[in-house]
Simulated assay, not measured.
Amino acid sequence: MEDKEKKSQEDMVKEAVEEAKKEAEASKDEAEEAKTEEVSEEQEAGTEDQTEEKASKKFFGKKDKKDKKDEKIEELTDRLTRQMAEFDNFRKRTEKEKSQMYEVGAKDIIEKILPVVDNFERGLDAVPEEKKEDPFIQGMEKVYKQFMTVLESVEVKPIEALGNQFDPNFHNAVMHVEDENFGENEVAEEFQKGYMYRDSVVRHSMVKVAN
């Protein structure tokens, strides 16, 4: 009976020891598993940090250093802008020169026509009053008026002189007279009519200036 009880106690001890071993191994496995998970999380975190760092370096590296393609585009854009500016200046300069050449040529032709106008005016002024109704004289007056209308249509106009203040920009004084009937520096008589083409003088008025 005692042997049986002894044997039963030994079995209980063995079972208790086995259970303790199992529990110890289970605790050990859990600890190792927890440690493995912690290491894995740290590795993942480190990998993410490295990835972010690489991406950051890659991004900022591209920003700091321009792409060759972008540099070429900037160079071509700058060259095109300069060429367009040069062409615009050339176009404006050409138009100005062309306008000046046209004006010089027009003034030269007008200057050659003016003596014909002078002869018309002298001839009509010399006609006696009693002959002004003559058909020939009236025809000449009509031709003269038509001539002046054509000149006016191309922006040729006579310079106002008689009774105005003398202006060297428009008048050429060939005589001077003291006369109380005129104001100071007033044009008293016009010997030859002056003309302008647009805003420039083709021929100055030849005048006599009073006082």
Score class of each variant (00 low, 15 high):
Lys7Met: 09
Gln9Val: 07
Gln9Lys: 12
Glu10Arg: 15
Lys14Val: 14
Glu18Ala: 11
Glu18Leu: 14
Lys21Phe: 07
Lys22Gln: 05
Ser27Tyr: 05
Lys28Gln: 02
Ala31Phe: 06
Glu33Tyr: 13
Lys35Phe: 11
Glu38Trp: 04
Val39Glu: 10
Ser40Glu: 04
Glu48Lys: 11
Gln50Lys: 14
Gln50Glu: 07
Gln50Phe: 09
Gln50Val: 13
Thr51Cys: 05
Lys54His: 14
Lys54Tyr: 10
Ala55Tyr: 02
Ser56Lys: 09
Phe60Trp: 15
Lys62Asn: 11
Asp67Thr: 10
Asp70Glu: 06
Asp78Val: 11
Arg79Ile: 12
Leu80Val: 15
Leu80Gly: 06
Thr81Pro: 06
Gln83Phe: 12
Gln83Ala: 13
Met84Lys: 12
Met84Glu: 10
Ala85Gln: 09
Arg91Gly: 02
Arg91Asp: 05
Arg93His: 08
Met101Arg: 04
Ala106Gln: 01
Asp108Thr: 08
Asp108Ile: 02
Ile109Arg: 09
Ile113Gly: 01
Leu114Gln: 01
Pro115Asp: 03
Val116Trp: 07
Val117Glu: 11
Asp118Thr: 00
Phe120Lys: 03
Phe120Glu: 10
Arg122Gly: 10
Leu124His: 00
Leu124Ser: 02
Asp125Ser: 13
Ala126Val: 00
Val127Phe: 02
Glu129Met: 07
Lys132Ser: 03
Glu133Gln: 14
Asp134Cys: 01
Pro135Asp: 04
Gln138Ala: 05
Gly139Glu: 09
Gly139Asn: 07
Lys142Asp: 01
Val143Thr: 00
Phe147Met: 10
Val150Met: 06
Val150Ser: 03
Glu152Arg: 15
Ser153Lys: 14
Val156Phe: 02
Ile159His: 03
Ile159Gly: 08
Ala161Ile: 01
Leu162Asp: 06
Asn164Leu: 11
Gln165His: 05
Gln165Ala: 11
Asp167Thr: 10
Asp167Gly: 09
Pro168Cys: 00
Asn169Val: 07
Ala173Gln: 04
Val174Asp: 00
Glu178Arg: 10
Glu178Tyr: 10
Glu180Trp: 04
Glu180Pro: 07
Glu184Tyr: 05
Glu186Asp: 00
Val187Arg: 02
Glu190Leu: 15
Gln192Pro: 08
Gln192Ala: 04
Arg198Met: 01
Ser200Gln: 11
Val202Glu: 04
His204Arg: 14
Ala210Ser: 10
